[in-house]
Structure formats: structure tokens, C-alpha cells
Design a protein around this nucleic acid. Sequence first.
DNA 1: GTCTATACTGTGATAGAC
DNA 2: GTCTATCACAGTATAGAC
Lengths: 206, 206
Amino acid sequence: MLGMANRDRRAERREATRAEILEAAWEVAREKGLAALTLRDVATRVGMQPPSLYSHFESKNAIYDAMFGQAWSEYERADLAAAAEASGSPRARVLKRSLVFFDFAVADLARTQLMNQRTIPGFEPSEESFAPSVRAVQRTAKDLAELGVTDRGDVEILFSIIGGLADQQLANDPGGDSRRKLLTRAVTMWADGVGLPHEAKGSQEP
Amino acid sequence: MLGMANRDRRAERREATRAEILEAAWEVAREKGLAALTLRDVATRVGMQPPSLYSHFESKNAIYDAMFGQAWSEYERADLAAAAEASGSPRARVLKRSLVFFDFAVADLARTQLMNQRTIPGFEPSEESFAPSVRAVQRTAKDLAELGVTDRGDVEILFSIIGGLADQQLANDPGGDSRRKLLTRAVTMWADGVGLPHEAKGSQEP
DNA sequence: GTCTATACTGTGATAGAC
DNA sequence: GTCTATCACAGTATAGAC
């Protein structure tokens, strides 16, 4: 019993330290750029010597990996909330989800680079960290299928449109909203192209 | 006279060495990743000691800058050739140019990261290196305007669609062609959305 | 003018003391 | 679990040979 309790407290402490390190890593990545992340900066920020980080992460890439998993988990939560909250016509639902994706991407360049671009040479997310990414994409595809978009290619095109707008926003107008203003028009083009109905199925019947 | 001749030969030699260094830099960037480029690797490849590179470039970022300018100049050439070669309906012309952009982006991840993403922390292209980028974008916008697409936002949306598809191709299916197959459909959605005519202006009249 | 030799600082990583 | 010490190698800069 006492052994168990001790082990739990230790595990909690360990987990808290890991979270602290990751939070510091996000700060550094946001301030100096994802690729400019250094273990020294992270260690200094949490009050450790650089080698001590290796007690919690086996390499720098392991930190990137944990950050990757965190980022996609956060997005998964944001997308789930948007899916639950979204209402109205299929187009309104798609637009709402698209805006959430766009805003999430544009809010943090370092995070988007880690999630969607191959910025860090040699970094490949682990299967575990990749899982929330797969889930998010699959659920979006499933939700779109229920709205009538069954072609997987059409789903990929929507992702590309929104991701492309977000990337252009980040690259050419960071902090601005020039591309966000174009999102509704772009998604409407896509909705027209795939024949997304203006009204929900059966909304005419009752 | 003799002085001139000597200066010319020296300038040529200098320029050739610069070009050699840049070619080596591209090789390293392609093989190891853009952010993993090191002056050591570049120097080794051209048979120099690392510090000797400073006789030709004042910093590592100056090398990135020259690469940036090269990449956009290459694209400018490719786009000009495509513009001259493209024929037929407005849609066929736009599709041709879109394919050239897509293929150019997908052919080289490191190059695309340098051109369109903010992969290297602290790197900002110089005005001189940025010029071909500006020219290419402006000329495309002008050509599209002549085809009837006058809204600058619509042009940005097209760039985002193609860029987004290319980035997804590079990130999720490097070396494949899954997104290339979707390009025609995506561009068609855009063409429908902006009301791009199927036939050229006046093609009905003669 | 261009290269070599050398050195300074900072990076990720490992080994071993406590 | 954290520290000190140390390593190999990165980018950068200067001095001096030729």
C-alpha cells in the first residue's frame, strides 16, 4: 500500500516535470523558431543543467515527438469541440470546422511546422504520437461522409485549401488576417465543386 | 586592357566558385534536409576548408539567401516557359501553369521549404533575392487578370490550393503522386468558383 | 586576394560521482 | 534524479602563408 502510494506520487512528480519541460520547449520554439530549439534554453528555463533533461527524455527528438503528440491532441480537442458546437447547414458546419483548423494553424507557426511540415531533419513522429493525428483526420473524413462528401480525394482537397491558406498566412502575413478573409470564399468554391448541399438532409421533410 | 582582361577572368573564376559552392549546398540540403545544412559539409564537397567559404559568402545565411534567389529565378524561368508554351482555353492555360508550379514544388522539399516556408529561424531573404519571387507572383496575377480573374483574393486562393496540395504531397506522400491526381479537380473547382470561361475571349467571333 | 591554420563559443550527447 | 566533466562537431572569426 505504502509502496503503491510512493510509486504514484513519484509518477505524478515525474509527469509534472515532463510537462514543465515541454511547456518550456514550446516557449523556446515560439520565441526562437522550432529549429532553433536548444536543450540549453529549455534546461535554463526549468532550472536544470542540460544533461538532466536526459533523465526525462532520451533525446532532443523525443522532446519534439512529445510536442508533436501534444499538438495533435490539442487540435483533436479543438476539433471535437467545434464538431459538437457546429450546427445548421452542412456548409455552415464545414465552414466552422475549417475556421477552427485555420485558426489553430495560424495561431502558432512553430506548432504548425512541427505538425504539418518536415522542418526538423531526421524527425519522424512515433506511432504513439502520430495516433491523434490519424484519429483527427479520420473523424473529419467520416463526418464529411455523413454530410455527403464520400470521395476521399475531395476531403484531401479541402485539407489542402485550408492548410494552404494557413501556410500562406504564416509565411507572408504572420499575425495578419488577409487569408482568413478568403477562407469562406475558398470553402464555398469547394462546397460547390463537391456538391455539398445547402440544407441538411431531410430538413425539408418535417 | 590587360588589367581588364585579368579582372574579367578573375571575376569569372569567382563566379564559378560561388556557383560551385551553391551547387554543393543544394546537394547537402537535399540529402540531409535544409536545416541540417552545415558549412563543413559544403566545404568538404567543394574541396575547401570551412573558413574558406567566407571568402565567397559573408555568412551561412548569405548562402541561404543566394539559394533563395536561385530557386525563385529557376521557377521564374520554368513559369515563363510554361506561359509561352501554354495554349488553348483559359482553363487549359491555368491548369498548365498550376501543374508547373506543383511539380516544381514537389520536386525538391528543401527548395520548397526555403522558398515558401519559414524553416530556417532568423533567415529573411534580401531584397535582391526576393525580387524574382515578387516578379513571378505579379506576372501570374497579371496573366490571370487578362484571362478575366481580376480579384487578387482569387489569385491568392489559387496559390493556396496548389501550394497546399504540394505541401501535403511532400509531407504525407513524398515521392508519390496522390495529390497531383487531385490537382485538375481542385483547379476546376476554383475555375468554376471564379467564373473562368471555358473558351478564350473572342474565340466564338471569327 | 585567396586559402590554411587555429581558436572561440555553443550544441547534442554520454559517463560517472553523489 | 541531478550534477560535473567531457566529447565531437557545429558556426564564426582572425591571423598569416602564399
